[in-house]
């Protein structure tokens, strides 16, 4: 097998100390291993509070996870100062994965349960609102059907009788846990369509006292250029290796300016894990 040994990648991990509450560092572990197994050298840059902008600019791939509210506020203060650099990279197509709180923060604003508005980075065309302290958090296993063409291999065969089977192998699975509901603007696309779960602004059953939250639009996450925002913890990448490899591929192609196909790896265990959770969710 030919390895991609001549390549190397710098992965920037934004606020590993503060924004790493829900096992999201698993995404970094998986990105690193899947590069190393292919002989791609990886450097993980830890971009903690008060990191230097030129460190961020050296990165070929950006990752940022979610955290507790108190910690997100500390991060917001620091990151707003570096907004221009991050925006430039995102506009330039530097790939990135932004989970939960990080995803919300890329948008225009976050309206807290008490109505207070927290300014976002305003890089992605989306906003998030918490419907109030009495509305439930959206918590549970989630499966989505991805919209990104490279995550839908064989999308050209739509209409085939095996489509259903294909759909499931392509499904992205994870665990969501968020109070905010996110609404997408016109210049971003959803990451996927909800198969089961809540997604961006989930449809909840009517609450007995008559006040029910508006029906969701069945979207999950957002894609803008090569930046991906999502509510999927789990963490998302271990059980969705096709997504991990897409991030690696985009990062390599962007850096080396040519078509690069990452060598295939043995994903039988990952497939079993995905199949097992889909079965638990009774998705056939």
């Amino acid at each position: 097998m030919i390895h991609n040994t001549k390549y190397n990648l710098v992965i920037g991990w934004l606020y590993p100390e503060l924004m790493s509450t829900y096992g999201d560092r698993g995404n970094i572990i998986v990105l690193q291993k899947r590069c190393e197994w292919r002989g791609i050298k990886v450097e993980i840059k830890l971009l903690d509070l008060e990191f230097k902008i030129n460190e961020l600019k050296m990165c070929d791939l950006i990752f940022m996870g979610g955290a507790q509210d108190q910690q997100q506020k500390i991060v917001a203060y620091d990151l707003l100062k570096k907004r221009e650099a991050l925006k430039e990279m995102i506009e330039d197509g530097i790939p990135g994965l932004y989970i939960c709180g990080a995803y919300q923060f890329l948008g225009k604003y976050y309206r807290e349960a008490d109505g207070k508005i927290i300014k976002g980075l305003n890089i992605l065309d989306l906003y998030t609102e918490n419907p109030g302290p009495d509305e439930p958090r959206l918590i549970g296993n989630i499966a989505i059907s991805p919209c990104h063409p490279e995550l839908v291999s064989g999308s050209h065969t739509k209409g085939d009788s095996d489509l259903r089977q294909n759909d499931n192998e392509q499904a992205l699975v994870g665990f969501e846990n968020h109070g905010g509901r996110t609404y997408l603007g016109k210049s971003v696309k959803p990451l996927g369509k909800v198969i089961k779960g809540y997604g961006n602004n989930g449809d909840l059953p009517a609450i007995p006292d008559g006040k029910s939250w508006q029906a969701g639009d069945e979207t999950e996450g957002a894609v803008y250029k090569n930046s991906f925002g999502t509510y999927l913890h789990g963490p998302i990448l271990p059980k969705n290796p096709q997504f991990t490899d897409l991030l690696i591929k985009i990062a390599l192609e962007k850096k080396y300016n040519k078509n690069i196909v990452p060598n295939p790896l043995d994903d039988s265990l990952e497939k079993c894990a995905k199949k097992s959770i889909l079965q638990k969710m009774k998705i056939k």
Partner: peptide, 19 residues
């Protein structure tokens, strides 16, 4: 079980980059 198995699969030491 498969989630835990994945955790262990990805737990080999970082410098061990052998395929």
């Amino acid at each position: 079980a498969f989630d835990m198995a994945l955790r262990l699969k990805y737990s080999s030491k970082a410098q061990n980059s052998n395929v």
